[in-house]
């Protein structure tokens, strides 16, 4: 369960005050696949950073599983990100000189206590996203879609409650995008809560719920009948 209450955040840029978030209140039940869409500057990325504990609001609260993360210290936040969250980025953000397994196992190296079977777990998750035969390949030896699958595997390896995906298909062609989105839909069906940030309506159509943002406020919040029915 994710609940935000009256989230506000302002930035000062070149003497101008920008309301990145202007009173956002939102409830997302467990297991829901939510897409947040909007033009650039609508505040959707800021919202994701708040949910991920990477940025803190000026006012308001972010509750995840009943815990308000807005006021946590950096150590507790780091632990929260490690144990509760998985991030997927537009540009994959893989370590270029490390193998797929090493990349996927990276979050486990920051877990305390450190699991002894980190590499086995990483290999298993890579198998689950369809890359069981690419374990020792480096990112440069993988296609864009495969790299994003590695990144998704890295987000999943720590058994997160919430997956935050920021334009996960932004760097991919349409065929590969569809594959990645179907993978996310499958993960959603398996019970993972997913928040997807995108400006692409076509991509957003995969989600059960579509939230449209503009100027730091929620413009529209609707259920996507097509995806819910599917």
């Amino acid at each position: 369960m994710i609940r935000t209450a009256d989230l506000r955040k302002t930035y000062t840029m070149g003497g101008q005050t920008i309301h990145a978030l202007d009173g956002v209140s939102l409830d997302i039940p467990d297991g829901q696949f939510v897409a947040v869409i909007g033009a650039s500057g609508s505040g959707k990325s800021t919202l994701m950073n708040m949910l991920g504990g990477l940025d803190s609001p000026d006012s308001g609260s972010v509750e995840i599983n009943g815990q308000n993360i807005a006021g946590l210290g950096q150590k507790t936040l780091a632990r929260f990100r490690n144990e509760t969250l998985g991030f997927v980025f537009q540009s994959f953000q893989l370590m270029p000189r490390q193998t797929a397994v090493a990349n996927v196992a990276l979050p486990l190296s920051y877990r305390r206590p450190k699991p002894a079977d980190a590499n086995e777990r990483a290999a298993a998750v890579l198998g689950a996203v369809g890359l069981g035969d690419r374990l020792t390949n480096k990112p440069t030896q993988l296609s864009g879609g495969q790299q994003q699958r590695v990144a998704i595997a890295r987000a999943l390896v720590g058994d997160p409650k919430l997956l935050l995906a920021d334009e996960p298909t932004g760097a991919l062609d349409s065929q590969t995008s569809d594959d990645i989105m179907e993978l996310l839909v499958r993960l959603g069906r398996e019970g993972l809560t997913i928040v997807l940030i995108t400006h692409d309506l076509e991509v957003a159509e995969y989600a059960q719920r579509i939230i449209t943002m503009r100027d730091g406020q929620i413009l529209e919040d609707r259920m996507n009948e097509k995806a819910v029915a599917a």
Partner: peptide, 16 residues
């Protein structure tokens, strides 16, 4: 810098 950002996003502490 991006590597550092990524490490932080997957749970690295400042001390790490």
């Amino acid at each position: 810098t991006r590597e550092i950002g990524l490490r932080m996003s997957i749970g690295a502490r400042r001390s790490d």
